[in-house]
């Protein structure tokens, strides 16, 4: 079956991306993981129907696709809020008070760890080390990193997200207003952010223009 028939309900650019991905690998099944991100981007999260589509595209069975999707925590099989707040609770962040950060964020958003707020604005989760130990405690918003986030700053960050509901979240912007000590100065200015709680696709400029 042709790609277009399988994912005819996807947006045209995403259909095109899917085609490119499938061509990029000698074995179709190798495209499964990026396609799962693409499907998440398309539907907001990974629906069973989308997993079945990816199975069809890659020649795997739906059960195999589900197996991959459920192994990795960054594939979301349930609804995700507009802003996914990931609070690191691994060792460095834990020692620097991550539990309090998580609690402050849960309270501010009214969203307990592992759930999504009823209005669909926030999802809150705790995660393992996100590679920012030097700037602990660290938090991500739609996988965009903020370091040195004290509990009250975490709460402010969430309030800002709710009130100004930015289209795009950008690391440097959030770091400037809500971050604290950084692990090191990256030396470049990040102007590219995320528009959805899905990594790997949809890199947009802070103005909302596609940059890639």
């Amino acid at each position: 079956m042709s790609v277009a028939t399988v994912i005819s309900d996807w947006s045209a650019p995403n259909q095109e991306r899917a085609r490119t991905l499938l061509e990029a690998y000698p074995e179709r099944r190798s495209a499964a993981m990026p396609l799962l991100y693409l499907a998440s981007l398309e539907h907001g999260h990974l629906t069973p129907a989308a997993m079945a589509q990816v199975a069809e595209l890659t020649g795997l069975t739906s059960a195999q696709v589900q197996s991959v999707a459920s192994f990795y925590t960054m594939y979301k099989r349930d609804h995700v809020g507009r802003y996914l707040i990931s609070v690191c609770t691994s060792i460095s962040c834990f020692l620097m008070g991550a539990d309090d950060v998580l609690e402050a964020i849960e309270e501010e958003t009214g969203t307990p760890d592992g759930t999504t707020s009823s209005d669909g604005t926030f999802s809150v989760e705790h995660v393992e080390c996100i590679g920012a130990c030097g700037g602990a405690p660290a938090v991500q918003v739609n996988y965009e990193l903020v370091e040195g986030v004290a509990p009250e700053r975490g709460a402010t960050l969430c309030r800002w997200l709710r009130e100004s509901s930015p289209e795009v979240v950008v690391t440097d912007e959030m770091q400037k207003y809500f971050g604290g000590v950084r692990s090191f100065d990256w030396g470049i200015t990040e102007t590219v952010g995320a528009i959805a709680p899905v990594p790997a696709f949809g890199p947009y400029g802070s103005t909302g223009e596609e940059s890639a």
């Binding site: 069975t61 589900q66 197996s67 459920s70």
Partner: peptide
């Protein structure tokens, strides 16, 4: 050759 069962979760 009909993998209709698989592991889920981790």
């Amino acid at each position: 050759g009909d993998p209709l069962i698989e592991f889920v979760g981790r």
